[in-house]
Design a protein around this nucleic acid. Structure first.
Lengths: 145, 145
DNA sequence: ATATATCATACTAATTTGCTAGGAATTCTT
DNA sequence: AAGAATTCCTAGCAAATTAGTATGATATAT
């Protein structure tokens, strides 16, 4: 039930892009430096996000990445799903219904469904705009302090 | 963000014990057979639950396991925590606050806190009694059909 | 041209997961 | 007293996953 670094790094990079939305492109090098993580690794993650249609890129000098939609139109669920393959706790509860012969009679299924429901709720209703707003106001507060 | 077999098998075994609460002891062999999984593996899991104080045991012939408290007094969160070490999505959000230097300034932290909060909500308020009740009424329904 | 980027792919070390195996200790039954 | 049934304890291991490295090709602004 752990969240991998893929999800964590990826989400943070996307929030970074969201806070700078409208200000041009940002390179992987810049994003990686901001988080203090490996460029090559983050590059892989962003590449996945690009294939998922969540970011746009431009190659060559002065190139980089930017969000492909308004921050308010990108949910964190989409991002995690792209990075981690799925946001399902277990196969037999997700949209695919795989991996389980006794799904209909499983004594634990109601619990998993409830839990997954709460998770999806948060992931689907929280957007990058929400996160960027939170972050900016928090930054302002600490500036004043 | 996946739930391991440890958590799944363990929870199901505990629900089995809950539905039989008050009817004596049940052996690992019986519990494993009910789920159709390896005895030796489930044995390990139950042993962890015992160390966590969630089940009682009696050794020797006719021995086995039973819940050490009323089903209504055992939350699924306790069980998962015992089996998986923790129910935290990431270290820097749990009760221990480890693993993260910039917790105070992390742009993703509000999201993780919210998500973890919803998860804990379900895990802490759902008891074995709830699950056993759900299961039994479901069984009755399918008997009639 | 050259420096700066993305893009693509392959490899690898460490960790975690999901078991299996073997035997010791305890208790009921006969 | 013997044997069967059971928990208890520990070690080992194969497969999968995670968390990266490494290398080089391709595209583009200056």
């Amino acid at each position: 039930m752990k969240l991998s670094t893929r999800g964590r790094y990826g989400i943070k990079a996307m929030v970074d892009l969201a806070t700078e939305y409208g200000n041009g492109m940002f390179s992987v090098a810049a994003l990686a430096a901001r988080q203090g993580i490996s460029e090559a690794y983050l590059e892989q993650l962003i590449s996945v996000l690009k294939k998922a249609g969540l970011v746009e890129s431009s190659r060559g000098a002065q190139g980089g990445y930017s969000l492909s939609r308004y921050p308010a139109d990108i949910s964190v669920g989409e991002i995690l799903k792209a990075l981690e393959g799925s946001t399902d706790l277990i196969g037999c509860v997700g949209s695919k219904r795989v991996n389980c012969e006794n799904a209909c009679t499983c004594s634990a299924r109601p619990l998993w469904l409830k839990l997954q429901g709460r998770i999806n709720d948060v992931l689907n209703t929280t957007t990058l705009a929400d996160m960027a707003d939170d972050y900016i106001t928090q930054q302002n507060r600490s500036d004043k302090a």
